[in-house]
């Protein structure tokens, strides 16, 4: 086979659109760890083959160069600096522990996302309830 015509294989992964609440089913076309296209799922229960302009075309943000690729921690100079996961997670955890010790367990608040998977939302509320025994948790449904 002429090597000039060989391409890495395209894989297809069924998922759900990440935009509005209709929940359209679609197939992601991926080559070399990059999304190269979206196909509407004809058997998607919510969309039956339809997609809107966002669901069909607005997927390239996933590979945008501005994606966060490392944790950031604010330094003594007031700026955000690249940090390791260990440094960032320790700093995040210590801050919550210190605030709760200083101001009480009702001084910590959690805001979960309407964009993340349900598993992330469940753990956000568990973090607040297990960590502080309060119900100081909400999500972005009020704005």
């Amino acid at each position: 086979m002429n090597p000039n015509f060989s391409h890495p294989p395209i894989t297809k992964t069924r998922t759900i659109c990440g935009y509005c609440g209709v929940g359209c089913s679609l197939d992601l076309l991926v080559r070399d760890n990059r999304i190269i296209g979206v196909q509407p799922a004809m058997d998607g229960p919510a969309n039956e083959g339809a997609l809107c302009v966002k669901g069909q075309f607005a997927y390239d943000y996933v590979h945008h160069p501005e994606r966060l690729t490392h944790p950031l921690v604010r330094g003594a100079d007031g700026q955000l600096h690249q940090a390791t996961w260990d440094e960032a997670l320790d700093r995040a955890a210590a801050g919550f522990t210190q605030v709760a010790a200083k101001h009480g367990r009702h001084a910590v608040y959690g805001v979960a996302s309407g964009r993340t998977p349900t598993e992330a939302d469940y753990l956000m509320q568990k973090f607040i309830r297990v960590g502080f025994g309060s119900h100081y948790i909400d999500n972005c449904s009020r704005a």
């Binding site: 608040y109 805001v111 309407g114």
Partner: peptide, 10 residues
Amino acid sequence: SIFAMLIDGE
């Protein structure tokens, strides 16, 4: 009375 927040994806 609120002094710390964890915000996910908002």
